[in-house]
């Protein structure tokens, strides 16, 4: 079955390629440059024919990537490159913020009576201090007790989402010096740049 589908996809690629090439030949200009176009088309045909063998031998070969590596940088539009860099930067930043939130989560959970629901972090973006935390808003709630009255209730674990609208469920928390000191010590942020908000229903519930 595997062999049949392999040959099937191979043949389909070749057939469609030849249809495409015949159309391309139609719109080709006639003149001295025709042979250059034919050269490139020939390369494409060779590639399509031998590409399945690369897969057969389990090479991880991506033509796009290799062509990109060999190409002169100017061959690609500058805005394309810029977009690639931007995307990359955005992804790195997203991962970085996620990691900080996870780190804070484990820190708060291990050291205090609270757990982190979400965190809003803005980082510095200037050259010298890139990545340093500029401002921190933490949404916490008191740890839920699972073993109240001898029964085990399983709490639904909420996924952490950055930038969710949490304002309405959370309120300013004033008794937060210890948490602020903890975070301030670990990350080197001034205390007045940390803002901690607590889940409204959570206050006082722990004593009931």
């Amino acid at each position: 079955m595997g062999v049949v589908s392999f040959i099937n996809s191979w043949l389909r690629d070749i057939v469609v390629l030849f249809i495409l090439i015949s159309i391309a030949e139609l719109i080709m200009p006639k003149g001295n440059l025709k042979k250059y176009i034919r050269l490139v088309i020939g390369l494409l045909i060779i590639f399509t024919i031998i590409n399945p063998f690369a897969k057969l031998f389990r090479f991880d070969f991506s033509l796009d990537k290799v062509v990109f590596n060999y190409a002169k940088p100017e061959t690609f539009n500058s805005w394309e490159l810029e977009e690639i860099y931007h995307n990359q930067e955005r992804q790195i930043e997203k991962i970085y913020l996620k990691k900080i939130v996870e780190d804070l989560q484990s820190l708060i959970e291990n050291e205090t009576e609270y757990e982190l629901v979400d965190g809003d972090i803005s980082i510095l973006k200037d050259e010298d201090n890139y990545g340093q935390i500029d401002y921190l808003v933490l949404y916490i709630r008191e740890k839920t007790r699972n073993n109240s009255q001898g029964r085990i209730s399983i709490e639904k674990i909420e996924p952490i989402e950055i930038n969710r609208n949490l304002e309405k469920d959370f309120t300013e928390y004033n008794n937060d010096e210890s948490i602020k000191a903890l975070i301030s010590d670990k990350y080197g942020i001034e205390k007045n740049r940390i803002n901690i908000k607590i889940y409204k229903k959570g206050i006082g519930e722990i004593n009931e």
Binding site: K34, V40, N51, V67
Partner: peptide
């Protein structure tokens, strides 16, 4: 058409680019 099959698209767009340049 090229996108529908397995042909690497960068490759085909290169051919189109070359045809355009030739014109």
């Amino acid at each position: 058409l090229a996108r529908r099959v397995n042909i690497e698209f960068a490759y085909f767009s290169t051919i189109l680019k070359i045809i355009g340049m030739a014109y």
